[in-house]
């Protein structure tokens, strides 16, 4: 199976064949693939490499959008969201332009590369900007569906590619989709993107409703209200913990509820190694999620 990133590149090349208004904009990273795959040769001028210039990557893409092109802007998450954040805010949102931003290096996918190549804050940052739809696919098939849909659109879309994938794709994860239904007393666990696999493993023998989404902005507030049984929600996001807590709270503002939020801790985690080791350190592997959910249920039972 292709990785999410390989699928993104493969589909992007096909989309350039299909849609003359698309342009892929890169800052070195990823250019070699498009060249080796013959995409550059097929579309000279529509795979644009600005060099290692990430502010320009975004500003230049905005100029393309100003003239009616739909740029697909791609690089590592820290260099796509964090370094040029003011360009993202002003050159696109404030100018009223659209684009598809696609990042790799989700959270600590580049664990061995260290903190400079990690951006678990990306979704939180993008969520502060109006108008952006934020997609966190959990499977390469979802990447293709999201990419095709957003490429055909006109708005602002951020797609966050990850190394971790779920065993199966969820056909339409744009809203909250029930994967498993519990009883009327069940805790509701919201799994975002690649966290679905460990969430299902962690809750396999629990009375839990598991909801899945691959699109966290806009957040599916109606879906949460529709599927919620008991007033207990566990939010599991594969990036900064609590990124969507305010969205869940706003959705349930009229319902007293409890909400622990699992995700990447807000601390300088000075370790290399692998993403699995970092999952374990942040309590985002199945065992860690299981422990957090069990603790929450025990605490909730004592508080009843």
């Amino acid at each position: 199976m292709l990785t999410m990133r390989e699928r993104f590149m493969h589909v992007s090349g096909a989309l350039l064949d299909e849609r003359s208004n698309l342009a892929v904009v890169l800052a070195d990273i990823g250019y070699g693939y498009f060249a080796d795959a013959g995409v550059v040769a097929r579309h000279p001028g529509r795979v644009l490499n600005v060099g290692i210039r990430q502010q320009l990557l975004v500003g230049f893409a905005a100029g393309l959008a100003m003239e009616g092109l739909r740029p697909i802007v791609h690089t590592y998450a820290p260099f796509l969201v964090e370094r040029p954040f003011e360009q993202v805010k002003l050159d696109f949102g404030h100018q009223g332009l659209g684009a598809v931003f696609v990042s790799v290096g989700a959270s600590y996918d580049a664990a061995a590369a260290g903190r400079t190549h990690q951006a678990p804050e990306d979704v939180a940052l993008m969520s502060t900007l109006p108008g952006w739809r934020v997609h966190v696919p959990g499977h390469p098939d979802e990447v293709e569906a999201i990419l095709r849909s957003t490429a055909a659109g006109t708005g602002l879309d951020y797609i966050r590619l990850a190394e971790s994938v779920n065993p199966e794709a969820v056909p339409d994860g744009s809203g909250l989709t029930p994967i498993r239904r519990g009883s009327t007393r069940a805790v509701t666990v919201i799994a975002v993107g690649p966290s679905l696999g460990p969430v299902l493993e962690a809750t396999a023998d629990l009375d839990a409703t598991v909801l899945y989404t691959s699109t966290v902005r806009p957040f599916d507030a109606d879906g949460l209200r529709m599927f919620l049984a008991a007033p207990a929600v566990v939010l599991v996001e594969p990036y900064l913990a609590g990124t969507s807590s305010a969205e869940v709270s706003a959705a349930l503002k009229d319902s007293p509820h409890r909400l622990p939020a699992l995700g990447v801790a807000r601390r300088e985690h000075r370790h290399y190694g692998s993403r699995w080791e970092h999952d374990r350190a942040h309590g985002l592997d199945a065992a860690g999620i299981r422990g957090s959910v069990a603790d929450f249920l025990a605490s909730a039972a004592r508080g009843r």
Binding site: F60, A61, A62, G63, L64, M66, G68, L69, D91
Partner: peptide, 10 residues
């Protein structure tokens, strides 16, 4: 200027 470069390229 970065945006203008993109406009000209487009």
């Amino acid at each position: 200027l970065p945006i203008a470069v993109g406009v000209a390229a487009a």
